[in-house]
């Protein structure tokens, strides 16, 4: 149970960063931390104590294995996060070109 709570604490660290940080790069990193916490949680969901990795190889007898589905989900969500991060970074570079700052409170041409 502790391990799930620690996972949730990591998630909250990311959420805190997104909500309070003013630097665009720190916001992007915080979103990454939230994603890692969720991925970690997904891997823990599939864990069974005493089980081995879920790959069948030659000459090995069948043993209890951990759940492979969450691992597949984590791989997919890592790929998606890679895309999100690349997109956010490119937007951050473009914003720096236009506004010459990474401070989110100074990037306020839209309001109302």
């Amino acid at each position: 149970m502790t391990i799930y709570l620690l996972c949730f604490a990591l998630f909250l660290v990311g959420l805190y960063g997104v909500l309070t940080k003013r630097d665009i790069v720190k916001i992007i990193l915080s979103i990454g931390i939230m994603g890692y916490a969720t991925n970690l949680f997904l891997v823990f969901v599939g864990y069974k104590s005493g089980a081995i990795y879920p790959i069948l190889s030659e000459g090995k007898c069948i043993q209890p294995m951990v759940d492979p589905l969450p691992q597949a989900l984590v791989l997919t969500s890592i790929v998606i996060e890679l895309g999100t991060t690349a997109l956010l970074v490119s937007l951050a570079i473009k914003l720096f070109q236009k506004y010459s700052t990474f401070d989110i409170t100074k990037i306020r041409r839209l309001s109302g």
Binding site: V18, L88, L95, R109, L110
Partner: peptide, 15 residues
């Protein structure tokens, strides 16, 4: 500039 700003906000919220 405004469009990049809006897209960044949208991308953070969406993420």
């Amino acid at each position: 500039a405004e469009e990049f700003e809006a897209a960044f906000k949208y991308a953070v919220m969406g993420g």
